[in-house]
Design a protein around this nucleic acid. Structure first.
Lengths: 216, 216
DNA sequence: GTCTATACCGCGATAGAC
DNA sequence: GTCTATCGCGGTATAGAC
């Protein structure tokens, strides 16, 4: 509120709000939000506790900022990929496929804040508001699955609601293990997750170009 | 330790250790372990804080008991379904299929404690020990996937390690929404999760008996 | 922008009466 | 088996000097 925008990022000792936020999110993900004290964060940054409160007015404000980043990114990505607007002729199934892949990319691009979002349980007003925004996004995804099912291009022996839960449960489970910088790029990950979701892990006759068996 | 086994479960007022544990696990899952105080638990049970410490020597002992239940159930289930012993002639792929389904059933049968287990981050010695036991189980599952891949009955364009992560990530994501008592029975859930994992959500030619389209 | 010092509160756990 | 009362600690947040 009364901050002078901290436009001068040069020279001065100390941290800006953004750096404090990034570090806080990492700690929240390592130990959990409730188990991370402002003293932990201050120690990690090498400053005193009260220095933190120069940048934010409360610990919960850090949480709110992080959740907002994740929700904004997810919502706009899902809107772009799932809505009819951009490619009016495409089938719902094609849009579903694109949405799954795009969700993976967003999750990876905003891994820390999305991880935090997926662990929120609704313990405070801030958390409840985040859960509500998330519910809206989930409902939009479920609607897309229902449209694809109505087209007849999805298997009909599984309820669309179940498919939606399982597919995006798979996507969300990535936060438990995927770390960028490894051998698997975000784009490859998105493609392979989508491939597994749509085609399963069993061999499909006539799908494989019989690649040379190489040991890693 | 000094408890007199509380064999008399009849008549007496108050709670036994098992009841306190079940209630504690539910609260831990609703709000998170760290965010749940012993005062919260006492209020929920309608007793004073110190009454809790008559049954357990610490809050963490409740966590340890719950995690032990989940890990024991998961380990024995995975051992039974994944090992060669019981059905020596079966392929690794068949055993993988059975293991996925059995994992779902165990997860549902022990939903509260498994949920708690999947949220543990390693903040204490108790939590770290649980994570280590879980790692052993996960490695056994990954080995089974590698065996199935080596048989040639799994698609080869995805790394076995990725398949293992994604499939059991899907299974684990069930704790976020599945609640027993609804229209979907645990056995049906197990079957449908397995079907989706192996065959994907796209229509497979010649698979569908074209069921009558019924609105729910 | 960071510091020290501190107010105030709720935490896990204990003591001892009933 | 539960109670009241309390201890000691560490939590978030604030005040005011530098």
């Amino acid at each position: 509120m009364t901050s002078q925008a901290t436009g001068s990022r040069r020279g001065r000792p100390g941290y800006d709000r953004e750096t404090v936020l990034r570090r806080a999110v990492d700690l929240f993900n390592e130990r959990g939000y409730d188990a991370t004290s402002t003293a932990d964060l201050a120690r990690d940054l090498g400053v005193s506790k009260s220095a933190i409160f120069h940048h934010v007015s409360s610990k919960e404000e850090l949480l709110a900022s992080a959740l907002d980043e994740a929700l904004t990114a997810l919502a706009s990505a899902v809107d772009a990929a799932a809505d009819d607007v951009r490619s009016p002729g495409s089938s719902a199934t094609d849009r579903l496929r694109a949405t799954v892949a795009e969700s993976v990319r967003i999750l990876v691009a905003h891994l820390p804040t999305v991880t935090l979002l997926l662990r929120v349980r609704g313990n405070s007003a801030v958390e409840q508001a985040a859960l509500e925004r998330r519910r809206v996004i989930d409902e939009k995804l479920a609607r897309l699955v229902r449209e694809a099912a109505a087209e007849g291009t999805l298997r009909t022996d599984l309820a669309p609601e179940l498919i939606s839960r399982l597919v995006f449960g798979t996507v969300n489970s990535l936060v438990e293990w995927y770390r960028p910088g490894g051998t698997l790029s975000p784009d490859d990950l998105a493609e392979q997750v989508t491939a597994l979701a749509f085609d399963g892990l069993a061999v499909r006759p006539g799908t494989l170009p019989a690649p040379p068996t190489v040991e890693p």
